[in-house]
Every structure is written in structure tokens, then in C-alpha cells.
Design a protein around this nucleic acid. Structure first.
Length: 428
RNA sequence: GUGGAUGUAGCUCAGUGGUAGAGCCCCGGAUUGUGGCUCCGGUGGUCGUGGGUUCGAUCCCCAUCAUCCACCCCA
């Protein structure tokens, strides 16, 4: 039926009124958390030069090779809808001198775009909250980021439903060296590799370690281990990070196979996962990317960050029914008037009350209709009280207040008494 | 990019080779100015789209599109 009509692009979803309170609840928690930790929000454009992503994420990654929304601008420039937030954030920070002899703690939130097959928890337009820090070398800030996320799970009631996985990829040099060692090892056992793995040999050989193919298990177990090829500094860095987490009482699992897909990561990487969402179980992931700023033309600048997938977290909150009822918006008062004169008066009375009681959540009935239908609308609106303005009330300068949620007689009040009476009636 | 499942009313879904039904929702009435419960009535569908088979297709066949789930990849 909709086939001839225009509909939303595949994998790009409308956020409907029924859903938005949960998003607002989540976004509110995040904003509050960032404020409390002293992180500043940064907003960057959704479109960037294609080269920014190609240079940062890595030319041969799936994201850059086949998942980007890339198009030509009218002047022939190649532009891309951002597939992730870190590159833009680094670009903006550099461009405005935010990294010049100073540290930064930044966060952002917004849509990202990847042309993948949609499935549960994975969409072509999806939303991330990202956090990036610059200028901090030590493991303390790595730990701070993890503690910050842990606190968020705590406050959202998600802590028992997520697991923290940690790994270290070593310095860029150590990682590159290990990569060569690993590729050499896989070349030796080329016959044992499955089709996917042979393809990954050039794209992301570290990822082969993560293969679920049981036929390759023995060969993978015998492969050189990343942890054995870490440079001394990275090993110390990682040890210090886990020590802080131990002291803070944060549980984690060291997963030597945890490899982030983006080329720019080095040293600490981490992932929060859940088993409650089907196959897209990663809910938050990040790591250190000490080389990226320099790679994009800046001075060498240590950096760590992470991103959360908002859709996945919303899905999790939904399936676990973790949104508090109080976070759902509701009306205090529904104002209705019977007849033309009273309807007009109701609209003006509504404005008067909004002026006198700024906290009052009030809606005035529009569209006329019988008294009965208007009261039905009042009930449907979810308001606690209905204010009835009929011809009788209008003539007498009074209003009738009707309780819609509790057993309680309706009251007749003079209009003068209304402003002081309403807060009392709505208390508790 | 690959594989599987599913497309019938706004929503959730029945159904049959002879051009469609329920529940919820919505609207009206029973109650000249009083909701939630009940009862009565009503609006609403070219059965995803395009072909084919057939006297006749919502049903069978093919194609196509969309959605969902999984692989891949990732948040």
C-alpha cells in the first residue's frame, strides 16, 4: 500500500512520540553525567571531506571500503556522511586550536551513517554518544572513561546486564610488528584458513583470531599472542589501568581477541557488551588512539575515547523495562470550554495560568465538540485535573475543577482563587 | 554483499481458488453540561507492487520492493 508513496530510507528510522520520552530520559542522564565529570559538548557537521575518514579509519576497513555514504558536492569535492564521530572531533579540535598545549575532555552526540544491511540493533542512520579526551598520556584518564561509563550503567540500572572486556593492542609500532608476525604465521597455515579469514589477511588479520570457525580453533590457539608482543610501555600502561579498575571494584574480563575495527586504535581498548540484544551485543566501545592527531596533520597528542550506540542502549532499557515511570511526561491540567464564548475564554485562561504558574503543565482543548467528548479527551490526555468552563461558570466568574485520577468530588472555585488553589490541589 | 522468514483495516492478527473478518483504536448514541466500566451503532482495506496460470487469484507460480532475523562488519 505504501509502495507507491515515499517512505523512509531503508535502515533510517523515525523516532515516534511514544519512543521519544525514553530517548529524552537517556539523553538527559548522559548530559547530566558529562556535566558532573566536567566534559564539554562539541558539535560538528554531519558531512565532512571524504579524505578525513579514509585517512583516520583506514583505507582498507569495511567502513571506508563499502559502508560510507559518499557523494560529490556541486563543485566536485568528495563528501561523506560521517560513519563515526572521532575523526570529526579530532578535525574540529585541531582546526580551532583546542589541542594547542592543553588538555581537553569532550563529548558529543548525534547521528552516524553506515550503509550496512539493517538488523536488530544495527541501522544505516544510528546515533552515538561519543567521548574523547586529548593530551592525557597516562592510564588514569583511560580509567576515568571506564569509571564514567560504569557510573552511567549504574544509574540506568544496567550494571548487572553488561560486561566489560579489556585488551591492549600495544603501541602503533608494536602492533604493526605483531601484525606482520601474525600474517607470517597465517601464511604458513594458509591451507587451514577459511574463506573469510583469507580475505581478512589483508584487511584485518588481527580479526582472524576472533573467528568462530571450530576447524581453525587449534591453529588459532597456537598463534602468536598479542599480549606477548606488547612493548614495555604499553604493558606497564595496561597493568596500571587494570590496577586502578581493581581498586575501584570494577569487574572486567581480559579478552586477548578484542580487536577494534578501526585502524587508529592503539594500547588500551575496551568494550561493554550484553547478551540481551541478540547478535549486536556491543553497547559501548573505545580505546586509545595516540597516533591519530599526528596522522591527521597535528602535533603528536595522546588521546582516548569511546562511543556508545544509543539505539542499542535504548533497546536494552526497553527490553529490561528500566525507564522509571516518573520520566514519562504528563499533564497537570486539561482546560476545556463549552460553547464558543467559553472556548475562547478557556484559551485565554490557559495563557493566564501559564503566566502565573510557569511550572504548570497545561493543555487547552482545541477543536470544540460536545462536553462529553471534551472530557474524554481530558481523560485521554493523562492530565490529573480537568478545568471545566461552561456557560454557567463563565457567567459567574467561576471554574469547575474535576479530578480525573482519584475519587474526589469536583470543586467550584472563583477565578481569583484559582492561581493559589492549583498548586495545593496538585501537591503530592 | 550472502542466507532465512514475513507482507491482509491506524495497530495486533484470523481466513478461503468464487472480488474479506475479529480484537484493539477512532467517531456517534444510551446520559440537554461530565471521562474511565457496560451495551448499541458507525468510519475504515484496489489483501505490498507488477506480471503469469485460471472462466475467476488475497490464496497457486515468477519477478520486484519493503520489513525482520542471522552471516559479514560494527556502536
Amino acid at each position: 500500500m505504501l509502495s507507491k508513496k515515499i517512505q523512509a530510507i531503508r535502515g533510517m528510522n523515525d523516532l515516534l512520540p511514544e519512543q521519544s520520552p525514553l530517548w529524552q530520559y537517556f539523553e538527559g542522564k548522559v548530559r547530566d553525567l558529562m556535566r558532573r565529570y566536567g566534559y564539554a559538548e562539541i558539535r560538528t557537521p554531519i558531512v565532512e571531506q571524504t579524505a578525513l575518514f579514509a585517512r583516520s579509519i583506514g583505507e582498507v576497513t569495511d567502513i571506508v571500503e563499502k559502508e560510507m555514504y559518499t557523494f560529490e558536492d556541486r563543485n566536485g569535492d568528495s563528501l561523506t556522511l560521517r560513519p563515526e564521530g572521532t575523526a570529526s572531533c579530532v578535525r574540529a579540535a585541531m582546526e580551532h586550536g583546542l589541542l594547542h598545549n592543553q588538555t581537553q575532555r569532550l563529548w558529543y552526540q548525534g547521528p552516524m551513517f553506515r550503509h550496512e544491511r539493517p538488523q536488530k540493533g544495527r541501522y544505516r542512520q544510528f546515533h552515538q554518544v561519543g567521548v574523547e579526551t586529548f593530551g592525557f598520556e597516562g592510564p588514569d584518564v583511560d580509567a576515568e572513561l571506564i569509571l564514567l561509563t560504569a557510573r552511567l550503567w549504574q544509574e540506568l540500572g544496567l550494571m548487572e546486564h553488561v560486561t566489560l572486556e579489556l585488551n591492549s593492542l600495544g603501541s602503533l609500532e608494536a602492533r604493526a610488528a605483531y601484525r606482520e608476525t601474525l600474517v607470517a604465521y597465517f601464511e604458513e597455515h594458509h591451507a587451514l584458513l577459511d574463506e573469510d579469514s583469507r580475505r581478512r589477511l589483508t584487511s584485518n588479520p588481527l580479526r582472524i583470531l576472533d573467528s568462530k570457525n571450530p576447524d581453525m580453533a587449534a591453529m588459532l590457539d597456537a598463534a602468536p599472542r598479542l599480549m606477548d608482543h606488547l612493548d614495555a610501555e604499553s604493558r606497564d600502561h595496561f597493568a596500571a589501568l587494570t590496577a586502578i579498575l581493581d581498586d575501584a571494584g570494577i569487574d572486567y574480563v581480559i579478552n586477548p581477541r578484542l580487536v577494534r575495527g578501526l585502524d587508529y586504535y592503539s594500547r588500551s581498548v575496551f568494550e561493554w557488551t550484553t547478551t540481551a540484544l541478540g547478535s549486536q551485543g556491543t553497547v559501548c566501545a573505545g580505546g586509545r588512539y595516540d597516533g591519530l592527531v599526528e596522522q591527521l596533520g597535528g602535533k603528536p597528542t595522546p588521546a582516548v575515547g569511546f562511543a556508545m550506540g544509543i539505539e542499542r542502549l535504548i533497546l536494552l532499557l526497553e527490553t529490561l523495562e528500566l525507564m522509571p515511570a516518573a520520566a514519562r511526561p504528563s499533564l497537570d491540567l486539561y482546560v476545556l470550554g463549552m460553547g464558543e464564548a467559553a472556548s475562547r475564554a478557556a484559551l485565554l485562561l490557559g495563557e493566564e495560568l501559564r503566566g502565573a504558574l510557569p511550572e504548570l503543565r497545561l493543555q487547552v482543548h482545541c477543536g470544540g465538540g460536545s462536553f462529553k467528548s471534551q472530557i474524554k479527551k481530558a481523560d485521554k490526555s493523562g492530565a490529573r485535573l480537568a478545568l471545566l468552563l461552561g456557560e454557567d461558570e463563565l457567567a459567574e466568574g467561576r471554574v469547575t475543577l474535576k479530578f480525573l485520577r482519584e475519587e474526589c468530588d469536583q470543586q467550584s472555585l472563583s477565578r481569583e482563587a484559582l492561581v493559589s488553589a492549583l498548586p495545593e490541589l496538585l501537591a503530592d
